[in-house]
Each structure stands twice: as structure tokens, then as C-alpha cells.
Design a protein around this nucleic acid. Structure first.
Lengths: 341, 341
DNA sequence: TTTTGTAATGGGAACGGTACCAAAAAATAT
DNA sequence: ATATTTTTTGGTACCGTTCCCATTACAAAA
């Protein structure tokens, strides 16, 4: 069933049917009604893929995140969805699983599918996918991880501030041997997270110990295995800061296994403030990320980019100043940190 | 940049370019190389939307769930993604937010976008969306909620078994005043969840009390507010079974607020076994749903349906026997239930 | 009556691919 | 050298819309 058949049934041309479909004003009242009736009783639904081909708009946005299983990204997604849905955009969700190769494949796929724009949380600071997005002239915004060497529109949080706040909180509570669990990064340069950690240590005149600067996959098993490993190596620490709450959960799990009490034997401060952080045992002290706003602002930014795009020309991401939106974080004190003397 | 321009640059016809794109065997080695070179250096990417229009396949699957925020659905989604990704399908994710109207809108949208198939967890047992999917001839499978009066392909768990197991566990532990928190359903008939609960009571010769059969929205606030409400009304119960772990979390929250200790003052058994259930305080005893398998099997089933579809004709969901896959559940005992005498 | 203007409709060329069929070129057989 | 087969290529209709342009119908003005 297509527009031509509807036209024939209604005894009009397909131009006219198209006009009622897009409710153009220049179609007579009774013609419109007649066509509408035919459409309803036939169960016809317009092929938006054909439409997209013609109008060069798909009304869909691609979203690439490393792990939707992580409540952090999920909350961001909610923010994104909120604004896009209101504007009639659909979301094509892609889960890169922290795999650069997969991320790139998805970017390619979304580009080929001619999505109107892309929101991406790349796995690394020099994401090949983002570079390509730029090259292909697709409107996009990246969040969470800033891109190096690329003037992209950005919605971020300062990761160094998170770790700084977290470490400082532990230092203020008398901890001096603090383990930092970051996510592995392929870059040679020290990550922002470690930088913030080091800054806090410096302020307290504490020399960083290399064995306390660790990396793990950003999930429960990541946190779990790092604690187990360090325990085997007899590395000493009384506090932990983690790159995300999920690895804090892993730390909890390991602590339980090893018979370590939190916060008595081990203090931990997470990062994200996922919804379930307050229900953990004990409730997790953490740095709250503006998750929903991150998504909300990213989507808004992308939409403005799409709207400003002139006609059908590809979007040139190098022209004009990139917009950079930096959102704040704050410490949420709960019960996973204990004062030491 | 389109196929025609590439053809011109390579000095061949667009047929030939199309052939190398779809790596057809009947193109000479050096022609192929020449075309490939041009493609690479020009950064051309084929428009899959145009392709889809012609071949009548989009290689994308629509997924409609009531709440991706619920780890239950998320786990299902992972299962879906696993099989679809391997077969080169993309996922278009839609969040109906337990809103029938929104669910229907999404179904329409996905149909218009000509997705190759749809996996749907409808909000109700007589989803208008599912009925339409049937009418429109789109391959689909529904999971989690069976459809009444509609012979659809199904991947489900017996909800009555879940509540039966949960209630029985409490009964075995000496509880006689058990609160059942179900999700509101628009149907007149008693829900499966309540049915299983009643069955367990009957086996123990306990008369059901209407005030202990409650409904709440399937999220944290739902569980929270129902407990608060019943507490105000001085309704007495020592055990709770919930339709999902998220409302159990809400129960925890309310208990804390009201100074009730779990499990000493209140025993609770959840349903789903979300990843964080074991990390709650106390760890939640719950009925484990086969979440990942639910998604995995649904996707497999859908794929087989799509593959068996002959050519371009719409899929007729009334012909042939529907496949119904029923998966089992089991009780996971943790620490939220206490024995009473 | 003829002209002019406006509202409503139809015709047909795109959009960017695919795929069938025919034609040309190259390889092989006669 | 010609006939035949096989390999490689080009031409073009089509997928289902939109949208520009032309045409028609009809009312109001000249």
C-alpha cells in the first residue's frame, strides 16, 4: 500500500494525497476528508524512509555510549530522550562497550543511515569515530570525554574536579594512603582523574605512591579484581576513590569477601551517584555527576546545531567557535567514609 | 557525494560502483581496486536509506520497553543486542514509560520507518500497539506480558509462578500477613501476579485480605509510597512480595524512614534479581527472572521470523502456530526474609 | 463577454541507490 | 578467421515520497 494506490482509491493525484499527509493548506475541505477516510480505512502508513530520501531528513538522532548498563549513561540517556522526544526525534542507541573499533563501526553505520545528528560519549580522548563525524559533516556533540585536538561542541564535567573533591574528602578525614581507581586510557598523558587526585595529595604534602594509582574496567568486576589484586600484593591503603560508582560496588564486594568492613577498615568514595548508591550497604559517599543535565544539555546543543544548519550542505564543525558547556559536581556525603586519627 | 559522482570519478558506470560496494564477484580486479581507491580518498559513504528504499530492508529492529531505567529491561536489552549485533542489525530503542498512548505512537513510528521487525514489552495485556503490529504485517515478538486474544509469538515467564514462589517462601517462614504489591493493570481480570499470590495463600489455608493486595507504579517511588500509605492506615503485615526489585528498593526506603528494620520488622522478597539486589542492605531475597535469556530468545525468535518471511509480502501473524517460549524462574535466598514463630 | 486573479489539482522530475537486461570485450573453441 | 562462450560493463526502470511547475476551475473585476 503506497501513496499512489491511495490516490487511485480516492480518485485524486498523489500530489494531493501528499498534500493532505503533510497537511498543506491548499487542498479543499471535502477532498481532504475523502482522502483521510481512505487512508484510515485502508490502514495505509506513509513510508518515512522514502520521505527521508527526498527531504534529506530522518528525524532520528544517533546516540553512542560505552555502556548503557551503567546507570550513569542511562540517566544521561533519559535527559537526551526528554528533549528529543518532545521535538519528535527518534533515538538510535548504540552501545560501544568501550570498544573503539565498535564505536567507529557504529559511527559509520549511523552516518550511512543519515541520522540528523549524533550524541557521543567516546571511549577515548582521541576517538577515531568523532574525527570521522567531523569529516563527514554530521552535526554532533560529545559529552563526558573531551576530545583532544578537535574543536567539538562539548558538554562535560571536569573529571579532575571529581577526583580532587573525592580525594580531599578522604584527606580531610585523616586518610593518607588513598587508592585511586581510574579507567584505563590509551593516551600517554596522565588522565584528568589522576591529575585531580595528585593535586589533592599535593595540597596535603603527601607523596603519591605509584602502586596506589590503578586502572580498572569501569564496572563491578573491575573494582572487585583490583582490590583482590592489591590485597594479594599486600598493598596498604585505608581509602579508595573510584572513577564511577559501579567500581565502588566492586570494591564493596571485594571488601566483603576479604572480611574488610566499610567504612571501618576501608573508606570509599564513588563517583556518579547512581540511584542505588544510597541503598548500598553502607550507603555510598560519592561525587554526584549531573547526569540528567548532561544529556539534556547535549541534546539541546545538538538540536540548535541541527536547526542552524543551512539547507542540505554538510555541517562544517571547524567553522565558528565550538560551544563548551561545563557542568559542576558536588560531594554527597553518606556513610562509606570514616574519620581516622 | 553519491554513487554517481564516484562513478564519474572512477570512469565507470554507477552499476559497477554498486557492484563493488556489494562486493559482487563479477567485477574485474583492477576496476574494483580503482573504484575502491576513489571511494576511500573521497570519504564517500553509501546512503543506506536509499538502499533500504530499494531493497525493502532496513537492517534495523525496533524495541519498545516500558522503562529502560529499570535494570530488568536493560538486562533484556543486552540479550537482544547480543544476537542482533552479531547479525548486523541495529536497534531503535523506544521507551514507552508505561504509557499506552506513547507505546502506540512508537509502534506507528517504527512501522513507518520500515524496521524489519519489532520486539515489544507492552504495558498491558491488550496493547493497541501490538494489535496494530499484527495488522500492519510487521514481524514482531512480544515478551514479558502475554497478549490476550492474540496469537502472537511470545517469550515469557509465568508471573503467577513468581508471586507463588515468593509468597510460599514467606509462608514457609511463618508469615501470614503478606502484602502483595503488583503493578496496576487496566484489565478487569485479576493479574497473574495476584493469582499466584492467592494460590500460595490458599495452600496455607489463609484468607486473603483485600487491603493486602495493592498496586503501585513499578519503580522506587511506587514501593515507597505504598508502604507509607499502609503505615498511615495502620494496616498490619510482616512480609511483602513485590512485582519487581525496584519497588522492593522503595519498600526498603520507606522502612528506613519509618524505623522498621528489614528483615526483623519486615521481610521482603523482590522479583527480577537486578544486579544490585545483592548489594542492598540487607541483600535482597528475590525471584530471579531470566532477563538476559528473555532478550536473547526474543531476538532469536524474531530473526527466524524475519528470515522465514517470503520476499516482500507483509508478514501474516495469524497464519501458523505462534511460538510460545516459557522460561523458568527461581528463588534466590539472601537476607531480607526472617523466620517468624 | 473577456480578462485577471486565486484556489485547487495534476504531471513529472528528482532523491540515491539496486538489479535486471542488453551490449561490449575478452577468452576460447571451431 | 569466424563462431561461441564467458567475463565485464553500461543503460535504465524502479523503490515511495516531495515539490516545483503547469493546468484547470471558478469567481470577481473590467
Amino acid at each position: 500500500m503506497n501513496i499512489k494506490e491511495i490516490a487511485k482509491l480516492a480518485g485524486v493525484s498523489k500530489s494531493t494525497v501528499s498534500r493532505v499527509l503533510n497537511n498543506s493548506s491548499l487542498v479543499a475541505q471535502d477532498t481532504r476528508k475523502k482522502v483521510l477516510d481512505i487512508i484510515n480505512e485502508s490502514g495505509y502508513l506513509p513510508n518515512s524512509i522514502a520521505r527521508s530520501l527526498k527531504v534529506k531528513k530522518t528525524k532520528t538522532i544517533g546516540v553512542i555510549v560505552p555502556d548503557i548498563g551503567n546507570p550513569f549513561y542511562f540517566e544521561v540517556l533519559r535527559g537526551i530522550e526528554k528533549v528529543l522526544d518532545k521535538k519528535g526525534f527518534n533515538i538510535m542507541l548504540c552501545n560501544s562497550e568501550y570498544d573503539e573499533e565498535k564505536e567507529l563501526r557504529y559511527a559509520y553505520l549511523l552516518a550511512a543511515k543519515k541520522v540528523d545528528g549524533i550524541i557521543c560519549a567516546p571511549c577515548s580522548e582521541s576517538s577515531k569515530a568523532v574525527q570521522n563525524l567531523c569529516k563527514w559533516g554530521i552535526p554532533f556533540v560529545v559529552f563526558d570525554i573531551p576530545q583532544v585536538n578537535l574543536a567539538t561542541n562539548l558538554v562535560v564535567v571536569d573529571h579532575s574536579e571529581c577526583s580532587y573533591l573525592a580525594a580531599k574528602h578522604l584527606l580531610e578525614n585523616g586518610h593518607t594512603n588513598i587508592l585511586s581507581i581510574d579507567v584505563p586510557n590509551p593516551q600517554k598523558i596522565e588522565s584528568k582523574f589522576v591529575l585531580g587526585y595528585l593535586k589533592a595529595l599535593r595540597e596535603y604534602n603527601i607523596l603519591p605512591k605509584p602502586e596506589l594509582i590503578q586502572k580498572a574496567s569501569p564496572d563491578i568486576t573491575g573494582g572487585y579484581s583490583i582490590i583482590k589484586k592489591l590485597n594479594n600484593q599486600k598493598v596498604y591503603f585505608t581509602g579508595v576513590i573510584t572513577i564511577c560508582d559501579l567500581v565502588a560496588v566492586g570494591v564493596y564486594k571485594a571488601a566483603k569477601k576479604l572480611g574488610l568492613k566499610i567504612p571501618d577498615d576501608l573508606s570509599v568514595v564513588g563517583n556518579d551517584d547512581i540511584p542505588l548508591a544510597r541503598y548500598l550497604n553502607p550507603p555510598l559517599t560519592t561525587i554526584r555527576q549531573p547526569k540528567y543535565p548532561l544529556g539534556f544539555r547535549s541534546a539541546k546543543l545538538l538540536l540548535s546545531q541541527i536547526e542552524s544548519k543551512s539547507g542540505t550542505e554538510p555541517y562544517d564543525c571547524t567553522q565558528g567557535q565550538p560551544t563548551i558547556i561545563k557542568l559542576g559536581v558536588r560531594l554527597i556525603q553518606r556513610c562509606s567514609v570514616k574519620r581516622r586519627n
